[in-house]
Structure formats: structure tokens, C-alpha cells
């Protein structure tokens, strides 16, 4: 039972990382209608920025906040300089653009910081506390709490502020939003910036565990995309729930299903996807897309 609770909390912790990345993808998709395959690479870049800020002598929390802020602007700039050109075009070309971006950013990280693993300190002490007879790591708990708080803040932003209202308007109908006098271009930049900042949080939270490498988030991106498919691109809550389910299931499967083990647990979300896509193609929580001709 103790192991089970431990696995559950650890699973929820990794799940919350996937959830942050998946939410960033949904955010970008809501704003610009594209799926950003470079979201993971951008998060890695943020991790490296935090690493460099640490190297300059900033305290950990300052470095993280600095990285999140810088990432916001990096995301906004990427939207303005690169993505804007492909937004109205074919969505498959846009995907290829984000894949080019993924390669480019991975390359930039490798260029500046090399392919060697860099250690990144954790915000939380490496200790465990007893919960119901299980020893639960503070890192896992801390990660879950941070991500939950940030999701709450995002929710507040989208529901409670004028900026959030404008962002929602743009995601629903760009043309009407423009007619209503909203600066659509700048709002799209904000959307990308927010997604990038959210990814930055995921990056700095996962970096202590995986150590910084340019390909650190490749696997996390795959999990996040799986969560996006399962939850449905149009449903932020669904995506978060799916990410949590994936995190827990893969952790349980790694320990309790001998064939899967730790190296094959990445297959778990995709087995899940196969089942779901056959039974419920619109995703667990998504609504069916209706196209009017």
C-alpha cells in the first residue's frame, strides 16, 4: 500500500509536468490554431536560461522567475517573427514550421550549452515525509502544488481580467475580435508568450530530476501530446485530467507490469490512445468538431 501511494504521488507529479506542457500546447492551439511541436524545446531553452542566470549569481527563485519572464518574451517574439507568416496557411505546413523550430532551438541549446548533462538544483529539498505509511518525496508534492497554483492563476487570468477576455475573444473568432477593435496581433503574441512561460515552469521543475540536456523534453513532449489527444484539443480541463491519468498509469505500469518496466512506460499513453481513439475519437472530454460546408 505504501508503495502504491508513493507511486500515485510521483505519478501525479510527473503528470503535472506533462499537464503544464500540454496546457501550453492547448493555449497556442486556442490562440493560433496550430500544434506547437517546439513547445518542449522552448521549455528546455527556458531551463538553460535559468541555468545561466544561476551561473551569473542570481538565487534559484530569482533565476526561475527571470527565466519565466524572458521565456514570455521569447515566445512572443517567435510568434511575431516566425509563426505569424504561417498562421493563415495550411495547418500541416505550420506543423512542419514548428518542427523546424524544434530542431533549431535544440541546436541553439546544444551550441551554447553543449550536449553534456548539466545539473540543475531543485526548489524543494530532497526529503520525504510520511503520508499514510508511505514516504512521499517533497519534490513531487512541491511540483504538484506549484503547477496547481499556476493553473489557478491562469484560470483567474482568463476568467477574471480584461486581457483574458480579449484572449478568449481572439481564440473564438479572430475576425470579429479585430472588428471589435482588439489588437489581434499583439494578443496572439501574448498567447504564445504565456504558453512559453508555462512551458518554462515545466522546464525548471523537471530539470533537477532529468538534468539539463538539449533533448530533455522530447519524451515529455510526447506525453504532453498524448494528453492533448486524450483530453481533446478544445478542453483545457480534459487535458490536465488526461495528463494526470497518464502520469499515474505509466508509473503504476512501470512497476506492476513486468513486461513494460521503466524503459517501455512511454508506450502506455499510446496504448491508452489506441483504445480511446477507437471508442471515443473526439477525446475523453473533447467535443466533436463540426465543420459547416
Amino acid at each position: 500500500m505504501g508503495t502504491f501511494i508513493q507511486l500515485l504521488i510521483d505519478g501525479l507529479s510527473t503528470g503535472s509536468i506533462y499537464a503544464a506542457l500540454a496546457l501550453a500546447i492547448v493555449l497556442v492551439h486556442q490562440a493560433t490554431g496550430m500544434v506547437n511541436f517546439a513547445q518542449g524545446a522552448m521549455a528546455v531553452l527556458s531551463g538553460y536560461i535559468a541555468y545561466s542566470l544561476l551561473g551569473v549569481g542570481l538565487p534559484l527563485i530569482g533565476a526561475i522567475i527571470g527565466a519565466v519572464v524572458i521565456s514570455f518574451f521569447v515566445g512572443a517574439l517567435i510568434e511575431r517573427l516566425l509563426i505569424r507568416r504561417f498562421e493563415r496557411g495550411d495547418e500541416h505546413t505550420a506543423v512542419v514550421v514548428t518542427i523546424g523550430l524544434l530542431t533549431l532551438i535544440t541546436g541553439i541549446c546544444a551550441w551554447f550549452w553543449s550536449y553534456n548533462n548539466q545539473l540543475f538544483p531543485s526548489l524543494f529539498p530532497n526529503q520525504t515525509i510520511p503520508v499514510f505509511g508511505a514516504s512521499v518525496s517533497l519534490r513531487s508534492l512541491g511540483t504538484i502544488i506549484v503547477i496547481l497554483v499556476i493553473m489557478g492563476l491562469l484560470q483567474l487570468l482568463f476568467v477574471g481580467t480584461k486581457l483574458g477576455l480579449a484572449l478568449r475573444a481572439v481564440s473564438i473568432n479572430q475576425q470579429s475580435a479585430a472588428f471589435a477593435g482588439m489588437p489581434v496581433g499583439r494578443l496572439l503574441m501574448v498567447g504564445w508568450g504565456l504558453a512559453s512561460a508555462l512551458g518554462a515552469v515545466a522546464g525548471v521543475l523537471v530539470a533537477p530530476q532529468l538534468t539539463l540536456t538539449p533533448g530533455m523534453m522530447d519524451t515529455a513532449l510526447v506525453y504532453a501530446l498524448a494528453a492533448v489527444i486524450l483530453g481533446g484539443l478544445s478542453s483545457p480541463i480534459g487535458v490536465v485530467a488526461a495528463a494526470g491519468i497518464i502520469g499515474v498509469l505509466e508509473n503504476l505500469a512501470a512497476v506492476y507490469v513486468p513486461f513494460i518496466g521503466h524503459d517501455l512506460k512511454v508506450a502506455v499513453p499510446f496504448l491508452l490512445i489506441f483504445v480511446v481513439l477507437i471508442l471515443r475519437p473526439q477525446g475523453l472530454f473533447g467535443r466533436k468538431a463540426v465543420v459547416r460546408v
Binding site: 533549431l104 541546436g107 546544444a110
Partner: peptide
């Protein structure tokens, strides 16, 4: 060390 960056840049330039 530049391999990935150059390839990404080539891909984006072509696009």
C-alpha cells in the same frame, strides 16, 4: 555542435 541548429535553420529558410 552546430548540426541540429543548421538543419533547423535550413528547414525554416526553405519554408
Amino acid at each position: 555542435n552546430l548540426t541540429a541548429m543548421l538543419q533547423g535553420a535550413i528547414l525554416l529558410l526553405v519554408l
